[in-house]
Design a protein around this nucleic acid. Sequence first.
DNA 1: CGGGATCCGTTACGATACTG
DNA 2: CAGTATCGTAACGGATCCCG
Lengths: 221, 221
Amino acid sequence: MAQARRYRLLCPIARALDRVGDRWTLLILRDLHAGPARFSDLQTLPGIASNLLTNRLRQLEDDALIRRRDAEYGTNVYELTELGSRTADLLFELAMFGAEFPPDEEIKRPGNLRTIAVTLRVACQRVVNPDMSLNAELIVDGEPFAFTVDRGLVDVKAGNAQNPEATLATSYEPMIAVADGQMSLDDFAGTRMRLSGPNPEQGRALAELMGRAMAQMKVAD
Amino acid sequence: MAQARRYRLLCPIARALDRVGDRWTLLILRDLHAGPARFSDLQTLPGIASNLLTNRLRQLEDDALIRRRDAEYGTNVYELTELGSRTADLLFELAMFGAEFPPDEEIKRPGNLRTIAVTLRVACQRVVNPDMSLNAELIVDGEPFAFTVDRGLVDVKAGNAQNPEATLATSYEPMIAVADGQMSLDDFAGTRMRLSGPNPEQGRALAELMGRAMAQMKVAD
DNA sequence: CGGGATCCGTTACGATACTG
DNA sequence: CAGTATCGTAACGGATCCCG
């Protein structure tokens, strides 16, 4: 039943909100930026009801922001369409604005860490050297991400990397603290991350890229 | 009663949505980017109930995104705080994304045109020459805006300009059509706008700036 | 007349239980 | 695993009323 509470205004801001303004919708898109996800992956969003998740996924499919794809053994996954992937900059600006506010006292932990992928990718994309290439694995609280740069094109996807040349392990809270401006980059780099892997130079390049990205975020305005 | 439906997640995207994610909130902020507005100005948002507007303004005040200020003759106005004004880039990205979707068939006209100020300002800011200065009046469907550039710092505010050196008159729909990519810039400049005022050179400079801004929008990604 | 407050019917959301 | 069904509660929309 085609969404009763829509603005239906000519203004493009209102048109955007008619697509992604409902509760949970932007958080679902945020998680899908980390790559395809199953229904149960998305259900780890803390507090979402299953029927609501179904509704949101239908709506996003109708608006062609996501597509449902059959995966192995009868399971199916949801993934961003090209149109849906254009929410990356929007989500990044939301993160920039949200970083202005101190976290609440009683905070729910996310069910998974796919949440970091968009923000990290866009932040790195904005400061990356166009010649750079690298293939690394980023591990946050034990969850692996494939972090690749292909001649200046940054990608961050949930899951293990293929033959990574370097591995950077860290955890969620200090990353957030740096993005919020609560922790210094030096402190983070010095004590909150661990490099390993066959190619230490790529490890340092990754750490340096993430560092510049995070530093840039704080002076964005 | 402190908002029951909040995410309360550590993720900065969720923290932002806890401040500006409610229905109407971002549209209120959008309008306030055009300058201070009274309660009744904001009530022209098509479809908002007065009690809801009251609630949203309270919430925005509590979060220090807006402030209420006494104006002349017992009236009072709402205006963005510095913190609230940091939603400009976010609103711009929303507009960029919303421009991907064709307007609905049955569209409500906005009650006023303050809606255009943020998007236009940010779009111009992103392409302006840092040396540029100008003082002009932009008239959209009869509603005046003071459009100024002070050594590269762009401002667009609702209301008449002070001693404008040039005036550019146009209307809302063609501006939207250009931003959506439905109308060519040449068509717009040639037939949908009218320049006047004592300093034609500043008029042309304004038209050229707006043109480059709108052209840039379409190739943003 | 500007700036709300109050009331009430409707819709959306949240929690839980249940099913192919 | 991937949803559907049900139901109580909170939020929204529209109208009316109030007060300086």
